[in-house]
């Protein structure tokens, strides 16, 4: 049985614009991944609990209206829950100076508007593979 990356696509914070997250979720499915999808406005604690229960490899956070500013809180919470190895990517509107802060906080990559869906899928696939080999060293 081949292994399929398991990805959580979600939104934290206050904004609810979900066009981007829905398109990305559907594309990752079409790229052969298993995508857990949630409505917007997830609490950080709920995202951590979900990531743990579903044992996801990668979390994709969509942020269009400054909610990326609380992603460092999510990274902290994941580490506190023993999920430091889970890959996190952020997609949406993120100013340059904030991008650096997110990468410093442990986010694997930030995808900006206009990113190709195929690029996102390829990155997620690689990231999931890296996460798994970190979890289960050969």
């Amino acid at each position: 049985m081949s292994l399929r990356p398991k990805v959580l696509v979600t939104k934290i914070g206050l904004d609810g614009h979900d066009r981007g997250s829905r398109i990305v979720a559907a594309h990752l499915r079409d790229a052969g991944m298993e995508v857990v999808y949630t409505p917007p406005w997830q609490e950080i604690a709920a995202v951590v609990k979900l990531a743990q229960e579903e044992d996801v490899d990668v979390i994709g956070i969509s942020s269009l209206a400054t909610d990326h500013l609380i992603v460092p809180r999510l990274m902290h919470a994941l580490r506190d829950a023993g999920l430091a190895e889970v890959g996190v990517i952020v997609g949406g509107i993120v100013p340059d100076e904030d991008e650096r802060a997110l990468l410093d906080a442990g986010v694997a990559r930030v995808f900006h508007p206009g990113s190709s869906l195929d690029d996102i899928a390829a990155f997620v696939r690689d990231l999931a593979a890296r996460v798994r080999s970190a979890r289960f060293p050969a």
Binding site: L14, D15, W41, A65, T66, L69, I70, R73
Partner: peptide, 21 residues
């Protein structure tokens, strides 16, 4: 602010999100 859209007062949300939009 998005906090207002969502029906919250400013003391009910993460402070870093206040007034950004």
């Amino acid at each position: 602010c998005n906090s207002v859209y969502r029906g919250y007062d400013m003391d009910e949300v993460y402070p870093e999100l206040l007034g950004t939009c």
